[in-house]
Simulated assay, not measured.
Amino acid sequence: MSVPGSSLYAPHRRTRRLLGPIFGVACFLATLTGVVVLSVVLGAVIAAALRRPGAEPWYAIGSNTRSLFELLWGLASKPQSSDPTLAGFRAGIAGSMWLLGLVAVFAIPVGVGAAVFLEEYAPPGLLRRIIQTNIANLAGVPSIVYGILGLALFVRAFGMKELAMGRTLLAGSLTLSLLVLPVIVIATQEALRTVPNSLRQAALALGATRWQMVRDHVLPAALPGILTGTILGLSRAIGETAPLLMVGAAGSIGVLPHSPFDRYTVLPVEIYNYAKNPKIQFQTVTAGGILILLVLLLTMNATAIVIRNRYGRPGRG
C-alpha cells in the first residue's frame, strides 16, 4: 500500500540524497573555519604576549605557561604608565568591575520586569506587537548609537547643567544599561515561553492571583534561562569600547574609582590606548590586556553555560 503523497516526492528523492551530505559537509566546513580563525587569532595574541628578549621556544609549554601567568598577574596589578615595563591595567579592571555591577543593578530589574509584563500581563494586540518589534530592532542597533544617546542624555542632559551627570561612572553605566536592555528583555521572554502553560493554569485553578502565579511558579521555572541571558548580556557590556569613548571614559587615569560619580576608565579603553602607542614593547602589554579581557569574558560565558546545564534540566531545582 503506497503512502499518500509519496509519488509527489519520489522524483526528488535522488536529489535529496545527494544534497543532504553536501549540506552537512558545508556546515562542518563553516564551523571548522570559525574555529580555525579564532584559534589563529588567539595563538597570535598569546605569541605577542610572550614576545620578549630571551623568551623560551614555543614548544616549552610549561615555562611559557608560567611566564604567561606571571605576565597577566603583573599587568592586572600595575597602574597605567608610559613605561612599558611598569604599565598595567589595574584602573581599567577596577572600572570594568564597577561598571559591570552598576549595569547589573540598572538593567536586570528593568529588563526582567519588562519581559514579565509583555509575556504575562500585556494583552495581545497592536500595541504589544509595536513594543515587541521596537525591542527587537533596538537589539540590532550599533553600539556607537547608544554612545551618542548616552552623551546627549546622561553626560550633557540636553544642555541642562543641573541634570547633567558629566563623564562619570554613573553616565557610562546607564549608557551600557540601555545597550544590553533589549538583549535581557528578549532572553527573559524566551525563558518565560519555555514554562508550560499547564503550570500557569494549575496555579490559577488553585486560587493563586496572577502575581502569585508569576512570582512563585513561572519565574523560578524560568530562572536558569533568565540568568543565562542576563550573564551573556553583561558579558557584552564589559567588552564594549565605542559607547564608553563617546560618554567620556578616561584614556589615562591614575586613581581607582570609589563612587558612581567618579571619573573612570575601563579595560577595553586601556587596551585601545596601549595599542596606539608606537613603542614595540607595548605590543606585549596590549596582548596581555586582551588576554585578561578574554579571561573575564570566558569566565562569564562559562558561568552562563554551567547555570544552564545544572539548573535547566528537568527535575533539577
Rank of each mutant, 00 (worst) to 15 (best):
Q80V: 08
V214H: 00
A157P: 10
F69W: 14
L296P: 04
S81C: 00
R263K: 13
I186K: 06
V183I: 12
L71F: 04
P268F: 15
T265D: 07
G95E: 04
Q132I: 02
A30R: 10
S96M: 05
A250W: 01
P257F: 07
V269I: 15
G20A: 13
V145Y: 10
F117Y: 15
E162G: 08
A107V: 06
T133N: 04
G62R: 08
A60K: 07
A87I: 09
L100F: 09
L294S: 09
I226T: 01
Y59W: 15
E56I: 03
L294H: 05
A202E: 00
R13K: 08
L296E: 07
Y59H: 14
G229M: 13
M1W: 11
I226M: 05
S252F: 15
M1N: 11
R128E: 02
G111N: 09
S39A: 14
C27G: 05
V45R: 06
R308M: 01
S7K: 11
A205Y: 00
R16I: 13
P4T: 10
A242N: 03
K161R: 14
A250F: 11
A242G: 02
A30M: 14
P278D: 12
G54N: 08
D83T: 11
N301Q: 13
V40Q: 12
E240Y: 10
A139T: 06
A203R: 03
G20N: 06
G88P: 12
R167D: 09
T228V: 09
V116E: 01
I148F: 14
G113K: 01
M246V: 06
L256M: 12
R167N: 14
A55T: 08
G251F: 09
L178Y: 11
V218H: 00
G312Q: 10
L169N: 07
P123Q: 04
E119I: 00
T85G: 05
Y264V: 10
I307L: 14
V112E: 08
R129I: 05
G140C: 05
V36A: 13
A114W: 02
Q283A: 11
L234R: 02
W73A: 10
T85V: 07
L50V: 03
G147I: 11
G5W: 12
L19A: 13
R52P: 10
E240C: 07
G125L: 08
F106Y: 13
A287G: 05
P53F: 02
I46C: 09
S173L: 14
V185W: 05
L50I: 12
L245N: 03
A187G: 13
S63I: 05
V295K: 03
G95W: 02
A249P: 11
V110L: 15
T286L: 03
M97Q: 03
A104Y: 04
G254H: 06
G95N: 03
R316K: 14
S235H: 00
L18M: 12
F158R: 07
V185Q: 02
I271G: 04
G24W: 15
I61P: 03
G24V: 11
G95D: 05
I135G: 07
G225Y: 00
Y146D: 10
L127Q: 03
G172I: 14
A164E: 07
G207W: 00
N137W: 04
A114Y: 04
L118P: 13
R156W: 13
A114N: 02
P196M: 01
S81V: 02
I253K: 04
G225R: 01
L151I: 03
A152I: 08
L179P: 02
P220F: 04
M246H: 09
R167V: 10
A203W: 00
W58G: 04
Q201S: 00
L219V: 05
L206V: 00
